[in-house]
């Protein structure tokens, strides 16, 4: 895993620095989430099974979706 502190991404339009270069799967693991989430990377939905194949790069934008009450 290469060290790179210059990677800045956006999570739901909020800038975030990555501590090191990581895939979507590693980023999710880093968040220690306790709920299911959906990730849209640069306006493209990425299924869970493909998270490990997407290496995040500087300027990437993630839309993070999570469960919300509905009728």
């Amino acid at each position: 895993m290469s060290k790179d502190s210059n990677i800045q991404i956006q999570i739901n339009h909020k800038p975030t620095h990555l501590p090191y270069s990581m895939t979507l799967a590693q980023w999710v693991e880093h968040q220690t989430l306790e709920l299911p989430v959906a990730l849209i990377l640069n306006n493209q939905f990425i299924p869970k099974g493909e998270w490990a194949q997407h290496l995040l790069t500087d300027g990437d934008h993630i839309d993070l979706l999570s469960p919300i009450q509905g009728g």
Partner: peptide, 20 residues
């Protein structure tokens, strides 16, 4: 129980999901 998905913070919806 019906629910949906929306753009939220990483912890948004966590208590809701735990209850569900």
């Amino acid at each position: 129980i019906t629910l949906s998905l929306r753009r939220q913070t990483a912890t948004g919806g966590q208590s809701y999901w735990k209850l569900i």
